[in-house]
Design a protein around this nucleic acid. Structure first.
Lengths: 256, 256
DNA sequence: CAGTGGTCTAGACCACCGG
DNA sequence: CGGTGGTCTAGACCACTGT
């Protein structure tokens, strides 16, 4: 791993440092390897530790690095493609996909915000199912699935939470979902989703909001929080080929 | 705007600070207003400026704040929903959507990376059309649209770049697109996309990679880079209702 | 010009992990 | 225990904005 020396340029040190590190990582390191520790890297490049950390922050945001307290900074594995499709893999009601683990299932009056989004009166009872999405055993996302209680009349009979959760999914499936409408935006994990995702609060996440329609009306609302560091959300009909990451810029990065 | 005082807690100061600021912003400020400057805020909360900035960084990542050098820190407008659909609004070939501005259009040999993604030989000529996506006059995204030259045989005749660009889109449309397959992931803007987006390098972006298929084969590849601060990507058939942001966590934020 | 956010420093202490 | 990343400080200077 070269020395560095950072020739004086009009761009910020941390950004130049990032560029140098990207090249180094791509050419001299592979997934799972640990980088030298921050104090040593900072010394090696002749910058303060805070400046080095600013560069590492960028690389972590890009999903190239993972930092673990007490362990070190490692080269991250490529992001996992997670299908965010309708019927096929991720529709809430389809029981065959094992990739979901139920956390809890409660019924509570809708907040103003939630009521507006669901198109019900504020305070109207809403079932909320919280669950995790697992990919190869790793938690990739948390999801809160909100359904107006009025839409699922026969749910009160189930006392046990896990029974109620399963019944909720089954009844939703039977409702017959006509369509879905989604949005994706950047967010940060709040305390509880952070805990479920096994990440510190403030971790960047991709927030997917899905509206499910049944017979032309909004039947359910799902808010999913995906780990932005490890997930690449995939949409669309039938994935043609594996998508290899491509730099968006025309000048091509030097081959590794 | 209250004093603060930050009761001692086991959570990091900057995170607690973020929470306090969120409440303050939601209740006492509205879009476009400027916050007190960083030095004053830091003093008011009794923390170092760097710590305050760490909290502001979070809020900026969430799209709640915009910081402008020389101006101040302002409350951001809600994110704009940007449709990322096929035929309707964003298909490259549909000329009626005025929301695109062509930047340039070049033909160059495919890099190894690009060749793999397009399924052509390395070094095979590829047309690359770069353009901007505008929403209400503001640049929201840059896009690089890659098409193997072999797929569009009658393009070499057009000398002028703008003619070639338009011809490329027209011919693509005529090709007849069967399907699309997309992925969305978090990234940071490199130097040139950052410049096009009028943001500093390192700005968080949502990278949308779209594979376009024609008669079962991959016909084109688009890499779009959306500003994560101001964009909410929307997918899906027919948006039912306006999606109001909903906190993913069950304990509801205090109403504003 | 004065005021703003952006960068950078040198140091300190803490929380967590492994042996 | 020693080593790692995570947090925090107090200060400095720079780059940009408006008047």
């Amino acid at each position: 791993m070269g020395q560095g020396q950072l020739t004086a340029v009009p761009e910020p040190k941390y950004w130049h440092l990032r560029t140098v590190l990207v090249r180094t990582i791509d050419s001299e390191f592979s997934t799972g390897q640990v980088l030298p520790n921050e104090r040593e890297l900072a010394a090696r490049f002749g910058v303060a530790r805070a400046t080095l950390r600013q560069a590492l922050d960028q690389l972590e945001l890009e999903g190239r690095l993972v930092r673990r307290r007490g362990i070190g900074t490692l080269i991250a594995a490529p992001r996992v493609g997670v299908p965010v499709n309708g019927r096929e893999a991720s529709w809430p009601g389809s029981a065959r996909s094992q990739a979901w683990r139920i956390v809890d299932c409660v019924t509570s009056p809708a907040s103003a915000q939630l009521a507006r989004a669901l198109g019900v009166a504020e305070g109207a009872p809403v079932h909320t199912l919280r669950r995790l999405r697992l990919v190869q055993g790793v938690t990739m996302a948390t999801e809160s699935l909100h359904v107006p209680a009025a839409a699922l009349p026969h749910l009160a009979e189930f006392a046990a939470e896990s029974d109620r959760a399963r019944a909720m999914l089954r009844q939703l499936e039977r409702l017959g979902i006509d369509g879905e409408s989604r949005s994706v935006e950047l967010g940060v994990a709040e305390a509880d989703s952070a805990a479920l995702l096994e990440r510190p609060p403030g971790t960047p996440v991709l927030v997917v909001t899905t509206q499910y329609a049944a017979s032309g009306r909004l039947a359910a609302l799902a808010v999913s929080t995906y780990r932005a560091d490890t997930c690449k959300l995939t949409f669309g009909e039938t994935g043609l080929v594996e998508v290899t990451p491509v730099q968006s810029d025309v000048p091509v990065r030097s081959a590794s």
